[in-house]
Simulated scan of single mutants.
Amino acid sequence: MNKILITMAVMSLFLASCGNATQKKTSDAEQTETAAVSDLTVYELDSLLAHAEDFVGQTVKVRGHVTHTCKHSGKRCFLAGNDENASLRVEAGGEIGGFNRELVGSELEIKGIVRERKLTQEYINQYEKDVEAQKIEEDGSAETCKAELNNIESMRQWMNANNKEYYPIYYMDGEDYDVVQK
Score class of each variant (00 low, 15 high):
3 K>M: 14
5 L>Q: 04
6 I>G: 01
8 M>Y: 03
9 A>D: 04
9 A>S: 00
10 V>H: 03
35 A>C: 01
37 V>E: 07
37 V>F: 08
39 D>V: 08
42 V>P: 00
45 L>Q: 04
48 L>I: 11
57 G>A: 12
59 T>M: 06
62 V>D: 03
63 R>Q: 13
65 H>L: 15
69 T>P: 00
69 T>V: 15
69 T>E: 04
71 K>D: 15
72 H>M: 11
72 H>Q: 12
73 S>W: 06
75 K>E: 14
88 L>F: 08
90 V>R: 06
92 A>H: 04
95 E>S: 10
95 E>Q: 12
96 I>V: 14
98 G>N: 14
101 R>W: 09
102 E>Q: 06
104 V>I: 15
107 E>H: 03
110 I>C: 03
112 G>T: 04
112 G>I: 11
113 I>T: 11
117 R>E: 15
124 I>E: 01
127 Y>Q: 07
128 E>D: 04
135 K>D: 12
140 G>N: 08
140 G>H: 09
147 A>T: 10
150 N>V: 11
151 N>D: 09
151 N>Q: 14
152 I>V: 07
155 M>Q: 03
157 Q>G: 00
158 W>S: 00
160 N>R: 11
163 N>M: 10
173 D>T: 14
174 G>N: 09
175 E>I: 14
175 E>M: 06
176 D>P: 00
176 D>R: 02
180 V>Y: 03
